[in-house]
């Protein structure tokens, strides 16, 4: 990919991601926020493609833009009362929160500017999926299996918590 194409693609995906994320936070209608969240996830997937992380990009689309977004949409629909157009308002901490967030960003930005990262690689891995598969079943096999258990436990836990408990005594 040529430099110009890469630059344009980076700014397009970044703009999509950041604007959609701002919409998620600032929209007053919770359904609009949930839909913009999907757009933000797709933008992040594009960023992963630019970083030569094909597998992560595919997982991002499948898990985030697919499963998590649908779960959030269900959450919105199962819990809504009152006027949907005023369903996603801010609380009283708006200005203090803005102050804190601006501070956090300023600190991160300042530290980024003065950090020496050392030599940067010119190109990423050729076959990231193959390396990823090898890593997951060699160096990271214990976390990998733990993650499988975690997902099972979380799924069962979510069902138990969300299921209505009958007073059958």
């Amino acid at each position: 990919m040529s430099d110009a194409v890469f630059t344009v693609a980076f700014y397009v995906f970044s703009a999509v991601t950041v604007l959609a994320a701002l919409g998620v936070v600032l929209k007053k209608n919770l359904v609009h926020s949930a839909l913009l969240l999907i757009l933000a996830f797709v933008g992040v997937a594009g960023i992963y493609v630019l970083l030569q992380a094909d597998f992560i990009a595919a997982v991002q689309i499948l898990v985030y833009a697919g499963a998590v977004a649908i779960l959030v949409a269900f959450g919105v629909m199962l819990t809504k009362r009152g006027d949907i157009r005023e369903s996603n308002l801010a609380n009283r901490q708006k200005w203090p929160a803005l102050f804190v967030v601006a501070g956090v960003f300023a600190v991160i930005y300042a530290l980024l500017g003065q950090t020496n990262w050392g030599p940067l690689a010119a190109a990423g891995p050729e076959d990231s999926v193959g390396i990823l598969a090898t890593l997951m079943l060699t160096d990271f096999v214990v976390p990998f299996e733990t993650a499988a258990i975690l997902l099972t436990v979380a799924m069962l836990g979510a069902i138990v918590i969300a299921k209505e408990v009958k007073n059958s005594k």
Binding site: V18, A21, V76, L89, A90, V101, V104
Partner: peptide, 23 residues
């Protein structure tokens, strides 16, 4: 950093619990 700060702002200011999860 930008995305993190936007999410942090949402998590701090939203009234709706689902919106906080989204942030």
């Amino acid at each position: 950093a930008l995305l993190f700060c936007i999410g942090l702002y949402g998590a701090l200011t939203k009234r709706n619990a689902v919106a906080v999860l989204m942030s």
